[in-house]
Amino acid sequence: MSRSSMSSKPSPARVLPRTAPDPRWRPGSPVQPFHSEIFAPAGEASGAGLALALARDAMTSLAAGEGEDTRQVLWVQDRAAIRKGGRPCLAGLPQDLRHRLIHVAAATPEDALFALEEGLKCRDLACVIGEIAGNPKALSFTASRRLSLTAEKHGVRLWLVRLDAAPDLSSARMRWQARAAPSAPARWDAAAPGPATWQAELFRARTHAPGQWSLSDDAGTLRLAREPDLDTLAAPDPVHLARPTVGRSLAARIHA
Protein backbone atom coordinates (compact mmCIF):
# COMPACT_ATOMS: atom_id res chain seq x y z
CA MET A 1 0.00 0.00 0.00
CA SER A 2 1.47 3.41 -0.96
CA ARG A 3 2.05 6.25 1.51
CA SER A 4 -0.27 8.54 -0.46
CA SER A 5 -3.17 6.13 -0.22
CA MET A 6 -2.62 5.75 3.53
CA SER A 7 -2.62 9.49 4.17
CA SER A 8 -5.63 10.30 2.01
CA LYS A 9 -8.76 11.26 3.92
CA PRO A 10 -11.86 9.17 3.41
CA SER A 11 -14.75 10.91 1.75
CA PRO A 12 -17.55 11.87 4.14
CA ALA A 13 -20.44 9.42 4.16
CA ARG A 14 -23.70 10.66 2.78
CA VAL A 15 -26.62 10.41 5.15
CA LEU A 16 -29.69 9.51 3.16
CA PRO A 17 -33.04 10.68 4.54
CA ARG A 18 -35.13 7.86 5.96
CA THR A 19 -38.86 8.31 6.07
CA ALA A 20 -40.72 5.66 8.00
CA PRO A 21 -44.18 4.92 6.63
CA ASP A 22 -47.13 5.47 8.94
CA PRO A 23 -47.86 2.02 10.40
CA ARG A 24 -51.48 2.86 11.08
CA TRP A 25 -54.06 1.89 8.49
CA ARG A 26 -56.49 4.59 7.37
CA PRO A 27 -59.39 4.70 4.90
CA GLY A 28 -58.32 6.21 1.62
CA SER A 29 -54.78 4.86 1.82
CA PRO A 30 -52.95 5.08 -1.51
CA VAL A 31 -51.34 1.68 -0.75
CA GLN A 32 -53.98 -0.98 -1.38
CA PRO A 33 -53.28 -4.72 -1.17
CA PHE A 34 -54.28 -6.99 -4.03
CA HIS A 35 -55.56 -9.83 -1.82
CA SER A 36 -57.47 -9.34 1.43
CA GLU A 37 -59.52 -11.68 3.61
CA ILE A 38 -62.39 -10.78 5.94
CA PHE A 39 -63.55 -13.25 8.60
CA ALA A 40 -67.11 -12.64 9.74
CA PRO A 41 -70.21 -14.40 11.11
CA ALA A 42 -72.60 -15.49 8.39
CA GLY A 43 -75.77 -14.28 10.11
CA GLU A 44 -75.16 -10.52 10.16
CA ALA A 45 -73.84 -9.61 6.66
CA SER A 46 -70.92 -7.73 8.22
CA GLY A 47 -68.35 -9.50 6.05
CA ALA A 48 -69.97 -8.67 2.73
CA GLY A 49 -70.73 -5.11 3.86
CA LEU A 50 -67.17 -4.42 4.95
CA ALA A 51 -65.73 -6.07 1.84
CA LEU A 52 -67.85 -3.84 -0.37
CA ALA A 53 -66.91 -0.74 1.66
CA LEU A 54 -63.20 -1.57 1.48
CA ALA A 55 -63.46 -2.26 -2.25
CA ARG A 56 -65.18 1.05 -2.94
CA ASP A 57 -62.64 2.85 -0.73
CA ALA A 58 -59.81 1.33 -2.76
CA MET A 59 -61.42 2.14 -6.09
CA THR A 60 -61.98 5.75 -5.02
CA SER A 61 -58.48 6.29 -3.64
CA LEU A 62 -56.72 4.62 -6.58
CA ALA A 63 -58.79 6.51 -9.15
CA ALA A 64 -58.10 9.92 -7.60
CA GLY A 65 -57.32 12.31 -10.42
CA GLU A 66 -58.00 9.68 -13.08
CA GLY A 67 -61.79 9.77 -13.24
CA GLU A 68 -64.39 7.34 -11.93
CA ASP A 69 -63.77 3.61 -12.39
CA THR A 70 -66.86 2.29 -14.19
CA ARG A 71 -65.70 -1.27 -14.88
CA GLN A 72 -67.71 -4.31 -13.82
CA VAL A 73 -67.47 -5.86 -10.34
CA LEU A 74 -67.42 -9.66 -10.02
CA TRP A 75 -69.09 -11.22 -6.96
CA VAL A 76 -68.58 -14.97 -6.45
CA GLN A 77 -70.31 -17.14 -3.81
CA ASP A 78 -70.23 -20.84 -3.16
CA ARG A 79 -73.45 -22.69 -2.34
CA ALA A 80 -72.79 -22.78 1.40
CA ALA A 81 -72.20 -19.01 1.49
CA ILE A 82 -75.47 -18.38 -0.34
CA ARG A 83 -77.32 -20.67 2.06
CA LYS A 84 -75.86 -18.95 5.12
CA GLY A 85 -75.94 -15.31 4.06
CA GLY A 86 -78.05 -15.00 0.92
CA ARG A 87 -77.27 -13.47 -2.45
CA PRO A 88 -76.36 -9.80 -2.99
CA CYS A 89 -79.49 -7.65 -3.17
CA LEU A 90 -79.30 -5.21 -6.05
CA ALA A 91 -81.65 -2.74 -4.35
CA GLY A 92 -79.35 -2.65 -1.33
CA LEU A 93 -76.18 -1.98 -3.32
CA PRO A 94 -74.85 1.53 -3.96
CA GLN A 95 -76.58 2.99 -6.97
CA ASP A 96 -73.39 3.28 -9.01
CA LEU A 97 -72.79 -0.48 -8.69
CA ARG A 98 -76.25 -1.90 -9.36
CA HIS A 99 -75.89 -1.90 -13.13
CA ARG A 100 -72.36 -3.32 -13.24
CA LEU A 101 -72.42 -6.26 -10.84
CA ILE A 102 -71.69 -9.74 -12.22
CA HIS A 103 -72.82 -12.44 -9.79
CA VAL A 104 -71.56 -16.04 -9.96
CA ALA A 105 -73.23 -18.77 -7.88
CA ALA A 106 -70.75 -21.64 -7.61
CA ALA A 107 -71.80 -25.12 -6.55
CA THR A 108 -68.63 -25.96 -4.62
CA PRO A 109 -65.64 -24.15 -3.08
CA GLU A 110 -63.50 -25.56 -5.91
CA ASP A 111 -65.81 -23.95 -8.47
CA ALA A 112 -65.78 -20.68 -6.53
CA LEU A 113 -61.97 -20.61 -6.42
CA PHE A 114 -61.83 -21.29 -10.17
CA ALA A 115 -64.24 -18.41 -10.85
CA LEU A 116 -62.28 -16.09 -8.56
CA GLU A 117 -58.98 -16.89 -10.25
CA GLU A 118 -60.44 -16.47 -13.73
CA GLY A 119 -61.97 -13.15 -12.69
CA LEU A 120 -58.63 -11.89 -11.40
CA LYS A 121 -57.17 -12.48 -14.86
CA CYS A 122 -59.67 -10.04 -16.41
CA ARG A 123 -58.40 -6.47 -16.38
CA ASP A 124 -61.84 -5.26 -17.46
CA LEU A 125 -63.03 -5.85 -13.89
CA ALA A 126 -62.70 -3.13 -11.26
CA CYS A 127 -62.35 -5.72 -8.49
CA VAL A 128 -63.48 -9.16 -7.34
CA ILE A 129 -65.43 -9.98 -4.17
CA GLY A 130 -65.79 -13.58 -3.02
CA GLU A 131 -67.67 -15.38 -0.26
CA ILE A 132 -66.74 -18.89 0.88
CA ALA A 133 -68.17 -20.55 3.99
CA GLY A 134 -66.11 -22.45 6.54
CA ASN A 135 -62.65 -23.88 6.02
CA PRO A 136 -62.90 -26.11 2.96
CA LYS A 137 -59.85 -28.20 2.05
CA ALA A 138 -59.84 -26.61 -1.39
CA LEU A 139 -58.96 -23.24 0.16
CA SER A 140 -55.46 -24.29 1.18
CA PHE A 141 -52.39 -22.10 1.48
CA THR A 142 -51.44 -23.11 -2.06
CA ALA A 143 -54.84 -22.01 -3.35
CA SER A 144 -54.61 -18.68 -1.53
CA ARG A 145 -51.11 -18.20 -2.93
CA ARG A 146 -52.44 -18.72 -6.44
CA LEU A 147 -55.06 -16.02 -5.84
CA SER A 148 -52.43 -13.59 -4.51
CA LEU A 149 -50.07 -14.12 -7.42
CA THR A 150 -52.86 -13.87 -10.01
CA ALA A 151 -54.22 -10.67 -8.49
CA GLU A 152 -50.78 -9.06 -8.37
CA LYS A 153 -49.87 -10.19 -11.89
CA HIS A 154 -53.01 -8.82 -13.54
CA GLY A 155 -53.64 -5.84 -11.25
CA VAL A 156 -57.15 -6.82 -10.13
CA ARG A 157 -57.90 -6.70 -6.40
CA LEU A 158 -59.69 -9.38 -4.41
CA TRP A 159 -61.62 -9.19 -1.15
CA LEU A 160 -62.48 -12.71 0.01
CA VAL A 161 -65.08 -13.04 2.78
CA ARG A 162 -64.65 -16.11 4.98
CA LEU A 163 -68.02 -16.88 6.59
CA ASP A 164 -68.00 -18.73 9.93
CA ALA A 165 -64.36 -19.67 9.30
CA ALA A 166 -61.33 -19.93 11.56
CA PRO A 167 -58.20 -18.02 10.50
CA ASP A 168 -55.88 -20.53 8.85
CA LEU A 169 -52.74 -20.31 6.72
CA SER A 170 -53.13 -17.83 3.91
CA SER A 171 -51.05 -15.56 1.71
CA ALA A 172 -53.62 -12.72 1.87
CA ARG A 173 -51.82 -9.41 2.35
CA MET A 174 -54.47 -8.10 4.75
CA ARG A 175 -56.66 -10.15 7.09
CA TRP A 176 -59.61 -8.70 8.99
CA GLN A 177 -62.08 -9.82 11.64
CA ALA A 178 -65.43 -8.05 11.21
CA ARG A 179 -68.50 -7.75 13.40
CA ALA A 180 -71.58 -5.58 13.10
CA ALA A 181 -71.61 -2.57 15.42
CA PRO A 182 -74.39 -0.17 16.52
CA SER A 183 -75.03 2.56 13.99
CA ALA A 184 -75.13 6.22 14.84
CA PRO A 185 -78.60 7.83 14.70
CA ALA A 186 -79.74 8.92 11.26
CA ARG A 187 -79.23 12.60 10.59
CA TRP A 188 -82.85 13.53 9.91
CA ASP A 189 -84.73 10.75 11.70
CA ALA A 190 -83.37 9.38 14.98
CA ALA A 191 -85.70 6.37 14.74
CA ALA A 192 -84.40 5.35 11.30
CA PRO A 193 -81.38 3.08 10.77
CA GLY A 194 -78.13 4.99 10.68
CA PRO A 195 -75.14 4.33 8.41
CA ALA A 196 -73.74 0.79 8.38
CA THR A 197 -71.04 0.41 11.03
CA TRP A 198 -68.52 -2.35 11.67
CA GLN A 199 -66.09 -3.25 14.42
CA ALA A 200 -63.06 -4.24 12.36
CA GLU A 201 -59.83 -5.77 13.59
CA LEU A 202 -56.82 -5.86 11.30
CA PHE A 203 -54.94 -8.83 12.71
CA ARG A 204 -52.41 -9.28 9.94
CA ALA A 205 -50.95 -6.99 7.28
CA ARG A 206 -47.69 -6.61 5.45
CA THR A 207 -47.35 -2.85 5.71
CA HIS A 208 -49.52 -1.85 8.68
CA ALA A 209 -49.57 -2.53 12.39
CA PRO A 210 -52.52 -4.49 13.76
CA GLY A 211 -55.34 -2.60 15.42
CA GLN A 212 -59.06 -2.23 15.90
CA TRP A 213 -61.30 0.38 14.30
CA SER A 214 -64.93 1.37 14.27
CA LEU A 215 -65.72 1.95 10.59
CA SER A 216 -68.87 3.31 9.01
CA ASP A 217 -70.21 3.80 5.49
CA ASP A 218 -71.17 7.46 5.27
CA ALA A 219 -73.05 7.97 2.00
CA GLY A 220 -70.75 5.59 0.15
CA THR A 221 -67.54 6.80 1.80
CA LEU A 222 -65.67 4.68 4.34
CA ARG A 223 -65.15 6.69 7.51
CA LEU A 224 -63.04 6.12 10.60
CA ALA A 225 -65.43 6.44 13.53
CA ARG A 226 -62.88 5.74 16.27
CA GLU A 227 -59.10 5.80 16.55
CA PRO A 228 -57.35 2.43 16.93
CA ASP A 229 -56.43 1.21 20.39
CA LEU A 230 -52.76 2.15 20.90
CA ASP A 231 -52.29 -0.73 23.34
CA THR A 232 -53.42 -3.12 20.62
CA LEU A 233 -50.98 -1.56 18.18
CA ALA A 234 -48.11 -1.98 20.62
CA ALA A 235 -48.93 -5.54 21.72
CA PRO A 236 -49.44 -7.98 18.82
CA ASP A 237 -51.86 -10.83 19.39
CA PRO A 238 -49.82 -14.06 19.51
CA VAL A 239 -52.89 -16.17 18.76
CA HIS A 240 -53.58 -14.43 15.46
CA LEU A 241 -49.91 -13.77 14.70
CA ALA A 242 -50.94 -10.14 14.61
CA ARG A 243 -47.87 -8.26 13.48
CA PRO A 244 -46.76 -6.58 10.25
CA THR A 245 -44.61 -8.76 8.05
CA VAL A 246 -41.85 -7.82 5.68
CA GLY A 247 -41.04 -9.86 2.62
CA ARG A 248 -42.70 -13.27 2.64
CA SER A 249 -45.93 -13.94 4.49
CA LEU A 250 -46.05 -15.61 7.89
CA ALA A 251 -47.50 -18.70 6.27
CA ALA A 252 -44.60 -18.82 3.85
CA ARG A 253 -42.18 -18.58 6.77
CA ILE A 254 -43.90 -21.50 8.49
CA HIS A 255 -43.67 -23.61 5.37
CA ALA A 256 -40.04 -22.65 4.75
Rank of each mutant, 00 (worst) to 15 (best):
Q77P: 08
G86H: 11
A51S: 13
G86E: 06
T70D: 11
M59Y: 00
A48P: 05
E44L: 12
V73H: 08
D78A: 05
A48K: 01
T60P: 05
G85H: 12
L62R: 08
A51C: 06
S46N: 08
S46Q: 03
V73W: 09
D78I: 06
T70V: 10
E44G: 14
R71S: 02
A64K: 13
V73A: 04
R56H: 03
L74I: 09
Q77S: 13
G65W: 14
T70R: 14
G85E: 15
G49Y: 02
A63K: 00
Q77N: 13
L54Y: 13
R83H: 05
W75S: 10
Q77F: 12
A51N: 05
D78F: 07
A80T: 10
L52K: 07
D57V: 02
A48N: 05
E66D: 12
A58T: 11
R83P: 00
L74Q: 07
A45V: 12
A64T: 15
G49N: 05
R71V: 00
T60V: 08
G86L: 10
A51E: 01
L50G: 01
A81S: 13
Q77H: 11
G47P: 06
R79D: 15
A81G: 10
D69M: 11
L54W: 02
G86R: 07
E68Y: 02
G85K: 01
K84E: 15
V76E: 11
L62E: 04
V73P: 02
G49A: 02
M59S: 08
A64H: 09
A63V: 00
G47L: 09
R79K: 13
A48D: 04
D57R: 08
T60Y: 10
D69Y: 01
G85A: 15
K84R: 15
T60G: 06
G67L: 11
R56V: 02
Q72F: 07
L52G: 10
E66V: 04
G65N: 15
A55Y: 04
A80W: 03
E44M: 03
L50Y: 03
M59G: 01
G47D: 05
A80Q: 06
L52M: 14
A45E: 05
A58F: 01
W75K: 01
L62K: 03
